[in-house]
Design a protein around this nucleic acid. Sequence first.
DNA 1: ATGTTTATGTGCGTTGGCGCACATAATGTA
DNA 2: TACATTATGTGCGCCAACGCACATAAACAT
Lengths: 224, 224
Amino acid sequence: MPNLNRLLAGLPAEDYERLLPHLTPVTFSLGEVIYESQGLMEHVYFPTTGHVSLLYTMVNGATAEVGLVGNEGLVGIALFMGGDTTPNQAIVQGAGEAFRMKAAAMQEEFRRGGAFQLALLRYTQSLITQISQTAVCNRLHTTEQRLCRWILMTHDRVHSDDLQMTHEFISNMLGIQREAVSIAAHRLKNKGAISYARGRIRIADRGSLEECVCECYQMVRDEK
Amino acid sequence: MPNLNRLLAGLPAEDYERLLPHLTPVTFSLGEVIYESQGLMEHVYFPTTGHVSLLYTMVNGATAEVGLVGNEGLVGIALFMGGDTTPNQAIVQGAGEAFRMKAAAMQEEFRRGGAFQLALLRYTQSLITQISQTAVCNRLHTTEQRLCRWILMTHDRVHSDDLQMTHEFISNMLGIQREAVSIAAHRLKNKGAISYARGRIRIADRGSLEECVCECYQMVRDEK
DNA sequence: ATGTTTATGTGCGTTGGCGCACATAATGTA
DNA sequence: TACATTATGTGCGCCAACGCACATAAACAT
């Protein structure tokens, strides 16, 4: 169940079989850069057990994440949206496996206009919802709520209660200070929602996290 | 030049002529709701002189804009992305004209896979960039920078230096207090960038606005 | 075993924006 | 003309987050 890409898995057998020869398994290692901002994109990636952050970097070096892609989607939507670069960076946030496909092969299948095209467009719509909700959430919700949301979203894409990530890393995703992450994490620890130490966060009580999180989490989840 | 939709205008004559019978001119009045959140969408709209805000509303009533659509794009992308509702509201922010097209007719043309499909997908990609940049901007930039960006983006979509909008309205777009808008606007007035009074803002010196604005403005503009 | 690097904790002064309560002034209405 | 409504100005206390400076402690390297 976890070891597949849900977008691919939802295709009719006929379409899937046509794709199969073009799918190459690859391994994502933590922190690996899949796409550089403005860099040339040559493949799309269908994560299975790995997952990827879509990141923007400002001229002063500040960063913030706009979306998270796991086995529900694919990385590289610009390649069928009529571009060959993206303005954002894509980096591996959870190590694991993915299938890779050459841009040209993907585009050829996309142009057939069948179930594959539909699935890709549907996913893109749900990603738009995720990014939009992030925009609103960044403006209207507290650090603690946003941290909860991010942990829950990550948890949904990792098949474990143990997440490997430092406060520093999270601060770059949420676009906040490292210290602010430590403080918010400490509060969540006091509530019994999580525990953590040196680059490891354990989800102790998902229910507590769901109580703290803002509505944005459910909104995006329901859309899928 | 202003009285057309650039997305439609960029199509080859052949494709455009096929669309023409399906395009009905409509008038957008200020504040008109084009789509309600989760409401059924029956048409797409190609603005010519009007423009539209894409808005999210939280359960507590707070609102924030994620995107702005003028004659460079269309309203209702969900209809070709495989949905028939959107999670956001679309409201008229600048009164004016648009062409309307029935969802079914648009979808039929979209499925042909030609220039029309390409244009729609390209535009969707640029909208994704806009929304992403909004997400990051909301997190990392000051009220004054965001106000500048919003005024400039609006100015680009209105064919006049006079904008009709109250501070209250702007506060709902930016997701901030009305008072915060008044204060930031006052600063811009002192710099000679704008002047304003009772629901009217005049762009006095675009250059000054461009000096105050964050990089997000150019990023989104260049993407187009 | 020791020193270095990395991850987190903590305090403190500053600031930007919020929530609120009003004041002022322009516009609309009877 | 008088009164209500709407738009903007302003002040004040409050709080969350920032920027910075460190302290502490675990993990790693030699």
